[in-house]
Amino acid sequence: MKKVKNEKTIKIISFILAIVVSVGFTILSYVFCIYLSLFQANSIKNSLYETDYYTHAYEQFCEDVTDILIPIGISSDELDNIAHEADMKTEINKYVEDFYNGTDTDKVRDAVKDALEKYYKKEGIEEDRHTASLTKELQKYISESYTENVRNKWFKYLKRAKNSLRNNILTTYLPITVLTVISITALFLVQKWRHRAYRYLIYASTVAVILTAAGPIALYKSQLYKRLSIQPKYFYDFAMYHIESAIKNMFVVSLMWVFAIFIFAILIKYKKKKLHNLNII
C-alpha cells in the first residue's frame, strides 16, 4: 500500500515537473526564435539585402531631393550624385547594428555645396549673401532628408521591442530557464528508472514541437502580418521578408525538438534494454 502510494506521489510530482519543463521549453523556443530572428543585426541586414532595401532607400532620398529643389526652380540633375548608395548602405547598417544617434552627413553637405557652386557658375549667377544663404539651407534640408531615409522610424520601434524583450529576458526568462533546468534535474532524481524521466521529457518536447510550429502555421495561414500598416513600400517589403524568415526559423526550431524527441526515444530504448539485460525489469 505504502509502495503504491509512493508510486502515485512520484507520478504526480513527475507530471507537475514535466508540465513546468514543457512550459519552459515552449517559452524558450519562442524567445530564442524571436530574439535571434527578428532583432539580431545580422538577420536584419540579411533581410535588408535580400529585399533591395538600400537601393530603394537611396531612390527615395533622390526623390526627396527633387521635391526640395522643385519649388526653388533648380533641376535635380544639377545635384546629381550628391550621395552614393554605398555610403547610405554603410550608414543604414551602422544604425541597424547599434542604433547610434549620429548619421555622417558631411560628405552630402560638401557635395551639395560643390554642386551648387558649379550650378551658379554655369547659370552666370553671382555668388552673394543670398546664394550663400540658399546653399546653407539646401545643405540643411538635404542632409535632414538623408538622415531620415537612413534612420527609418520603424527601426526605432524595432529597437524598442528589442530592448523590451531584453529587459524581460533578465526578469522573466532567466528564472524560467533556471526553473526548467531544476525541474529536469528533479525529474531525474525523483524517478527510480532514468527512462521514465526521458518519457516525460518526450511529452514536454512534443508540446514544444506542436506549439513552436502551431504559432507560425497559424500566422502564415492567416497572413495577419501582411496587414501591418507600414510605410513606405520598400520598408513593408523588408518587414514581410523578415517576418517570414522568422517564421521559417521557428519551423527549424520545432524540427530541433523533433530531433530531441528522437534522441530521448533512443535513450529510453537503450536504458530499458540495459535494465532488461540486468534482469531488473
Binding site: 512550459v23 515552449t26 506549439l211
Partner: peptide, 30 residues
C-alpha cells in the same frame, strides 16, 4: 500536456499577450 501547457502559458503571459494585442490593433489594417 498540450492543454495544460497552453493554459499555464496563457495565464502566466496574459499581460504580455494583451500588450501585443493592443499594438496589433493599432498597427493592423482591415
Amino acid at each position: 500536456f498540450l492543454a495544460l501547457d497552453v493554459s499555464v502559458s496563457y495565464i502566466l503571459f496574459q499581460p504580455l499577450i494583451e500588450d501585443v494585442k493592443g499594438y496589433a490593433n493599432l498597427l493592423l489594417l482591415d
